[in-house]
Design a protein around this nucleic acid. Structure first.
Lengths: 248, 248
DNA sequence: AATAGCACCAATGCTTTATTGGTTCCAATC
DNA sequence: GATTGGAACCAATAAAGCATTGGTGCTATT
């Protein structure tokens, strides 16, 4: 460790001499070792200690940088989420989106929604219906014209996809459920097209409740998806979405 | 359009003959045109019609695919978001969180909420009040007992922090606004403690509307935060989320 | 035993190349 | 004279290649 101490001292002096701003990148280890007249091994000893102190951080393929590691990105990985937690979250978010969509959708949005409903009703394949179902919900989210809410919706969607959702859909959506889903979709699309936020909110709420019922039934039937959240018991319909005016 | 119709027909026959699964990728336009004996222009006419119908989607540099356009992977980072967009999103999400919190908060949650309200009311400093305000909203989100919704709330929070929010708060929260905020917080906490989801929902909604009003006033006063979302023009008071659940 | 030197690995970033839908332009055709 | 065919070109995307860089092990030297 004798050389390591030397290196640490040399590094401290070097950095103090340059007074680099935080976030600055140091020379690569090989170059730096040469410049300071140290062996790379000794230099790395010193760098390791400085990293321990939090004065710098190192990344393979990137380099060595002063200051704290850059937040390691706002890497917000959504937790996987149990199915009933997911449904509770969708129940909280998507009816609001539907209400806003009814108030603010433009012609393009309406066309996308209408198309998703129609194509979903035409297809016979369950799996393909699932894709159009997803497309519809996304189209509604887009129609709300709020990039933040759209991002939140996508987050939710992403953690719905990872996870046992696709398997579930195939397992518990039968032809009757699909037909009911189509009808609910149509009601939703009509409410949005009619610029009726309250009706759109209610339609989405009913639709999601219907999906949640399927899941609850499956759970009750002994599937092992874990205990779910508590949204089930009370309807709570129609809230504030009236008048999400069409300002802009 | 004569050739376009021909191409459409040829395409339909071609696709029907292959019965490709949804999501499958078609041959590049140039190759496909050669294979079908069509000019590329005519082929593109047909493809455009099919895309209008939603049977396929095309992406430059990617190709032509059957089925609905897949959702782009969710942004890792939230878009910055204009203040009024943020408020619209909070208005959509947080009242729901408050309702769930009223139904599901445990003793620890209630203590955290109560503490945030109390400490916020005690402090005189505007900046410190802001911290307790944030703490309260977060405590409510935690009380909803849904990890997914909590994650969504944090996402929203993160993009509220980056951005001109802190400056704004200092700029447009005066002593009167703070006192009103404290009162609204108290009403919210009491509704949650009383296990009254509807009241909690309404309290949060009113509180956020009050904050939104401040922002709208600031915008009207000529601040340059850009045109905001659309919830602005109508006060939208008095809602009726009767019957929220007291599930569980 | 510690160290210096060296080679190699794996992750990351950057550059280059190839593919592909979208567009424009002009001559050919009906 | 409007439509069509062919070709070239553009821009977005993806894939491949190359270089850089921290991390690691191995060997010889002191």
């Amino acid at each position: 460790m004798r050389k390591g101490d030397e290196a640490l001292q040399a590094l401290r002096a070097y950095l103090a001499g340059l007074s680099l701003p935080e976030g600055a990148r140091l020379a690569p280890e090989r170059d730096l070792a040469a410049k300071l007249g140290l062996s790379r091994r000794a230099l790395r000893e010193g760098l390791a200690r400085l990293e321990l102190e939090g004065r710098l951080w190192r990344g393979v393929g990137q380099g060595t940088f002063l200051g704290p590691r850059p937040a390691s990105e706002p890497l917000r990985v959504m937790p996987p989420g149990r199915p009933l937690d997911i449904m509770e979250a969708r129940l909280a978010l998507e009816p609001q989106l539907a209400g806003l969509a009814a108030a603010k959708a433009n012609a393009e949005n309406l066309a996308a929604i209408e198309q998703a409903v129609r194509r979903g009703s035409e297809t016979a394949d369950i799996e393909s219906w699932g894709r159009w179902d997803t497309a519809l919900h996304r189209a509604v989210a887009e129609a709300a014209q709020n990039p933040l809410l759209l991002a939140l919706f996508e987050q939710l969607e992403s953690c719905r996809i990872r996870g046992e959702w696709s398997m579930m859909r195939a397992a518990l959506v039968d032809e009757a459920a699909r037909r009911r889903g189509v009808a609910e979709h149509r009601r939703l699309a009509e409410a949005i097209a009619a610029r009726d936020p309250a009706a759109a909110h209610a339609a989405m709420w009913d639709h999601l409740q219907s999906v949640a019922s399927l899941i609850r039934d499956a759970l009750r039937a002994g599937q092992a998806w874990g205990p779910g959240a508590a949204f089930g018991s009370v309807p709570r319909e129609q809230e504030d979405d009236r008048d999400a005016d069409a300002a802009e």
